[in-house]
Design a protein around this nucleic acid. Structure first.
Length: 891
DNA sequence: CTTAATTATA
DNA sequence: GTTTTATAATTAAGA
């Protein structure tokens, strides 16, 4: 048998030079090519395509991208002005450079730089070394100086216009393309100079003359040996006068092929692309066409090869016996509809890493053994979305107990951004268990989503989930311990899941007739406003279409646009308000928008989700979505029912107690975020404010405006101080505050500076939390809820600023979320213990809504206020306000 | 079927 | 050149 030895091939890329070429090749696209964060991407895109081309064409076995390190090199030791006069890298390019490293790593390419040496020298040294070791070498650069490296085994590709073409310089072509042999390039540069590197060369000698001279004399050394033979001329004079410069120039142009690099060619084996990193990179840069291409390729490949599967022992059973339930199991319920209140349970599964059992929900419900297993708190269970299982089983008459670990809640605490997809595969894979297919691969997506005709396929899939979840539990548990998040999981999130489940199942009663009354009322108003608008516009159009509306306002009617959006002129509320004085039509448009929003979202939307049998609405609280640890509410969202404007607020009249003689009751934390700020910043003035039970906005006004007492605070001062307080919590900028208060930026800056002067503890807190975030990469709440901020050290101003604001806000917003969660658990416990009929129905971030018999109201008020105020002992008191009434409108 | 624009809440 | 946190739902419009 003959083995053909394929020659090793080393690809060396001149990173900066190619990046420059890519940047200028796509310079005309500069403003068009930005990602969602406003980062320019043209150089990255160009570089990417160049890489694709050359990797595809060359199929290197080894590769490296070399970069220049720092601004001084050994060449500066003998020529200060080397590369002098060169423009610094344009900002639009330098902002892309950090991401270039990401791109390279996604392509599996190693990067290297060496202090005091240029990329050229690294490339020269490696090329030289590799050639001796019998490599074939290809160099990619935008700089023709590198053609001096060309030999029989070293080829240099120089990028030319665009991103897809290169000129290949080989022993055969260098002479044709450059006019001299590769070994003459340095002589050529010594004579003619190189303006781009500020290599001087000899006065009056350009490329034409240099080529002619080298044809005649072959080398610079030989030229100067025979310089006397040259006819007297200005050129001869210059050559003689500038002999030193000529040799200096040659020395500068000479690539150092013996740089002290710490790597060798053999270490540079090229592993190929890292698809996962590449996907992440494409997503980050919004390179959607590349992303699609990758998807298609991956799909085609997946057809060819079955993903390797671990052999999992599983059994689909009809008869369920007690022996099938081990002490420690994963319980898994497969539901394809994310609304677990209504979803069918397609499969019930349980088991450990030895064996998995599967059955139908019908058979499970009919089995005593199964019921015992579910309700036995000594049967230790691992779940995947505790609240979903609790609700689904509760609605089928089973009371889930004995869950001592939930994988979704745990992974949310470890990395809140990773657990929202709902796919087991994501979590198991991130924890070292690759054997679970994504749900989409088994069930399909969109309209085609459903149980596969091949039942066995689903069973196998579910069995792999059980096995996977069982085997990752230990790793996740350990990480929770490392993060000090056990209390958060076992004492807060898991107990809360049951409470939220009960709140969801109980639901809140909504009076459909009341809403229908509003529907008629609003429909009439809308028709009237519509006609008014059409009249003023002179034509009918779709007012709901921002596109059509902006056409009417800014083209047909000729008003001046105030702001642009990605696709046209903005017609957002603040824009329209600024137009109000000159454009009589906008008043009506604003009113139309206001009513249309209420009508579509809260009137029509709510009617769709009221259970016609019971008049109840069952929202779902998402426990693992918000990155601050807050809950969110969906289907319907009951956390954004209108309150500010009267028309919208009327929707709340439809939210009523379920029984006659019952009342609604609500309790909300007063200024919880500023109180938490006072606590964690330990600012003594802020703490005093709350300890003295002062109005925080008034006190802020006194301090910021330098007043003597609260009596001097005007309503406008208080309003401004309130805006400053809000801004502080969110991570303020002078621009943002100026927009908010409609004042100049200078004035806003004045406010902020004064605030920090008068509340120095807050200033320190902000500085410290940002530094902490930069050092450790994440911030934490009081209960160690963690949020990672990967952009905190980004060179992209937007991303970095955003991360910094998040760093200040998350501990505040997140600690408030922690506290109300603790309060909810304690309230629920006390309601049960003290045998009140009252039900906790809703949570709206800092507010809890209850219903109870009227007679219970005083007891409820006492219980809830006490519990909420004492949920956590802080440096300041927590204060709760409460109200009772017949509808939510009255609270 | 996805994205952009808009607007509702704390 | 940019610029106040966190979310969900609806509509229009382009792929």
């Amino acid at each position: 048998m003959t083995t053909k030895t394929t020659k090793k091939k080393l690809l060396l890329i001149d990173g900066h030079s190619v990046a420059f070429r890519a940047f200028y090749a796509l310079h005309s696209q500069l403003e068009r090519m930005k990602n969602a964060n406003g980062l320019h991407t043209n150089a990255l895109y160009g570089f990417h395509n160049m890489l694709e081309n050359i990797l595809e064409k060359e199929q290197p076995t080894h590769a490296l991208v070399a970069f220049d390190a720092g601004s001084t090199t050994f060449r500066h030791e003998f020529f200060d002005d080397y590369k002098g006069g060169r423009d610094s890298m344009p900002g639009e390019l330098s902002e892309q450079m950090p991401y270039l490293k990401e791109l390279l790593s996604a392509f599996g390419l190693k990067s290297y730089e060496l202090p005091n040496f240029e990329a050229d020298d690294i490339i020269g040294t490696l090329a030289n070394e590799a050639e001796k070791q019998d490599y074939e070498v290809v160099v990619l650069s935008g700089d023709k100086d590198l053609t001096q490296l060309v030999t029989e085994d070293i080829r240099v590709d120089i990028t030319v216009k665009g991103v897809s073409n290169v000129e290949e310089y080989t022993m055969e072509t260098v002479k044709d393309l450059m006019g001299v042999r590769p070994d003459q390039i340095v002589d050529y540069l010594g004579l003619s100079g190189d303006p781009s590197d500020n290599i001087p060369g000899v006065t009056g000698v350009g490329d034409k003359t240099a080529i002619k001279l080298l044809e005649q004399y072959d080398t610079m050394e030989n030229l100067y040996e025979h310089i006397d033979e040259m006819n007297k001329s200005k050129r001869k004079e210059n050559l003689i006068n500038e002999k030193d410069t000529a040799f200096l120039s040659k020395k500068l142009a000479q690539i150092n092929t013996e740089s002290p690099i710490e790597i060798s060619a053999d270490e540079l084996d090229y592993p190929g692309k890292d698809i996962e990193k590449l996907i992440a990179f494409y997503k980050e840069m919004d390179f959607n066409s590349h992303l699609e291409k990758l998807d298609t390729e991956a799909y085609m490949e997946s057809l060819g090869e079955q993903p390797e599967e671990k052999e999992i022992q599983y059994e689909v059973v009809d008869e369920i016996t007690a022996e099938m339930f081990a002490e420690q199991t994963v319980l898994y319920l497969e539901m394809l509809d994310e609304n677990y209140h209504k979803a069918e349970i397609e499969t019930v599964a349980w088991g450990d890493d030895e064996k998995v059992y599967l059955t139908t929900i019908t058979q499970a419900l009919a089995s005593e053994a199964f019921k015992t297993y579910i309700e036995d708190s000594n049967k230790h269970k691992i779940t995947y979305d505790l609240k979903a299982y609790y609700v689904a089983l509760q609605r089928r008459g089973l009371s889930l107990k004995g869950v001592d670990f939930d994988a979704v809640l745990a992974s949310y605490l470890l990395r809140s951004e990773d657990s929202s997809s709902g796919d087991v595969a994501d979590i198991t894979e991130k924890n070292g268990y690759p054997g679970v297919l994504p749900d989409e691969a088994v069930y399909g997506k969109g309209a085609k989503r459903g149980v596969p005709t091949d039942n066995e396929k689903m069973f196998k899939h579910v069995a792999s989930k059980v096995d996977g979840l069982f085997s990752i539990r230990e790793k996740i548990s350990k990480e929770l311990v490392e993060n000090e998040q056990e209390e958060l999981l076992y004492e807060i999130e898991m107990p809360l899941a049951y409470i939220l489940g009960d709140m969801e199942i109980d639901g809140i009663k909504v009076d459909a007739q009341q809403i229908e009354k509003l529907q008629t009322e609003f429909a009439e108003i809308l028709t009237n406003i519509e006609q008014t608008i059409y009249g003023l516009a002179g034509e009918e159009f779709n007012i709901n279409s921002p596109k059509q509306l902006s056409e009417i306002l800014f083209v047909k009617m000729g008003y001046t646009p105030i702001r642009k959006t990605k696709t046209g002129f903005s017609t957002a509320q603040d824009v329209l308000e600024k137009l109000q004085a000159e454009a009589p039509i906008v008043e009506h448009i604003l009113k139309y928008r206001q009513i249309a929003k209420i009508q579509s979202t809260y009137v029509d939307g709510l009617l769709k989700v009221i259970d016609p049998e019971t008049s109840l609405v069952h929202t779902r609280y998402q426990q693992t979505v918000a990155r601050t640890g807050r809950l969110s509410s969906v289907d319907p969202n009951l956390q954004n029912i209108p309150i500010r404007l009267e028309e919208g607020r009327k929707v709340r009249q439809a939210f009523v107690p379920r029984e006659k003689d019952w009342k609604l009751f609500s309790a909300d934390y007063s200024q919880i975020e500023l109180r938490i700020l006072a606590h964690i910043s330990e600012d003594k003035h802020l703490i005093e404010t709350f300890k003295n039970n002062e109005d925080v906005h008034t006190t802020t006004a006194v301090r910021v405006f330098g007043l003597e007492s609260a009596d001097e605070v005007t309503p406008n001062m208080r309003r401004d101080a309130k805006a400053v307080n809000f801004g502080i919590v969110y991570g303020i900028s002078d621009y943002g505050l100026s927009q908010n208060l409609n004042i100049s930026r200078a004035e806003a800056k004045e406010y902020i500076d004064t605030y920090f002067e008068r509340f120095p503890g807050v200033k320190d807190y902000i500085d410290n939390i940002i530094r902490e975030a930069k050092d450790q990469g994440f911030v934490e709440t009081i209960f160690h809820r963690r949020r990672y901020l990967p952009d905190i050290n980004s060179r992209n101003f937007n991303l970095r600023s955003f991360a910094e604001r998040t760093a200040m806000n998350t501990p505040i917003q997140g600690s408030a979320a922690d506290i109300i969660k603790v309060a909810m658990i304690q309230v629920a416990e006390r309601l049960e213990k003290e045998k009140l009929e009252a039900k906790m129905l809703l949570q709206v971030h800092d507010e809890l809504v209850f219903e109870a018999p009227e007679a219970e109201m005083p007891a409820l008020k006492k219980l809830v206020e006490e519990t909420m105020e004492s949920a956590l002992d802080l440096a300041i008191p927590l204060k709760v306000d409460s109200n009772a009434g017949d509808t939510w409108y009255d609270l």
